Every structure is written in C-alpha cells, then in structure tokens.
Lab assay of single mutants.
Amino acid sequence: QEELVKAFKALLKEEKFSSQGEIVAALQEQGFDNINQSKVSRMLTKFGAVRTRNAKMEMVYCLPAELGV
C-alpha cells in the first residue's frame, strides 16, 4: 500500500496524466496489478488532487503543492 501511494504521488508530480485511465495504466506498468479506475479515483480524492493546466496547456492531474511530495 505504501509503495502504491509513493508511485501514485510520483506519477502525479510529472503532471502529464489527463485521465484516470492513464494513471491506472501507468501504475499497472509499474507492477501494481490490482489497481483500477475506482481505486485511482479514491486516491485522487484522498490526496486532494486537482486538474490543472501544465506547461503545454494540457489539462492534467496534479497534487496541491502544500502536500510537499
């Protein structure tokens, strides 16, 4: 569980995922086979993730800066 949270936060820091499906796929690539869209959705809510525009003006998920991840 701890490893999943770390990987999840690291992915969001990249600010390149525009959908929950993309986050699920990226986590599965890292070996988290039991991850699915509903789990990702709950984690996004739990950590207060928001959708914002990145440098390329794409809408992407990211974590609020005050979490200091």
Rank of each mutant, 00 (worst) to 15 (best):
A10H: 08
V69Q: 12
Y61W: 15
A55F: 04
L44W: 01
V69F: 06
S18L: 08
F47H: 08
G48R: 07
P64M: 04
G68N: 12
N36T: 14
E22Q: 15
N34L: 08
R51C: 15
K16W: 04
K16S: 08
V40K: 00
F17S: 04
I23Y: 02
A10V: 07
V40M: 03
L4I: 07
L63E: 03
K46D: 15
L27C: 01
E66V: 06
M43C: 02
V50Y: 10
R42S: 13
L12D: 00
A49E: 03
S19C: 04
E29M: 11
F32P: 00
V5D: 14
Q37M: 12
K13L: 13
G48S: 05
K9Y: 14
A25K: 13
Q20I: 15
E15M: 11
E3H: 10
L4M: 07
K39L: 15
L11R: 01
A26F: 11
N34P: 03
K56F: 10
F32N: 01
A10D: 11
K46I: 13
K16C: 15
Q30W: 08
G21I: 13
F17K: 03
V60G: 02
E29T: 09
N36Q: 05
A49P: 02
G21T: 11
F32D: 01
P64Q: 05
A10K: 10
C62F: 07
I23E: 00
P64G: 05
I35R: 00
T52C: 15
I35L: 07
E14N: 06
L44P: 00
N34W: 14
Q1D: 14
V60K: 03
F47W: 06
N54H: 03
K9A: 08
L44D: 01
Q20R: 12
F32Q: 01
L27V: 01
S18R: 15
N34M: 10
L12K: 00
F17N: 02
I23W: 01
E14K: 07
S18Y: 06
N36G: 07
N34T: 11
K6D: 09
V50H: 08
F17L: 06
N36A: 05
L11Q: 01
A26R: 07
D33Q: 13
E14H: 06
K13C: 06
S38H: 13
L63G: 02
V69H: 11
L67S: 14
A7F: 06
M57C: 04
Q20K: 15
Q28G: 05
R53W: 07
E15Q: 10
L63W: 06
L44M: 05
L44V: 04
A7V: 09
E15L: 09
E15Y: 06
F32R: 01
Q20L: 12
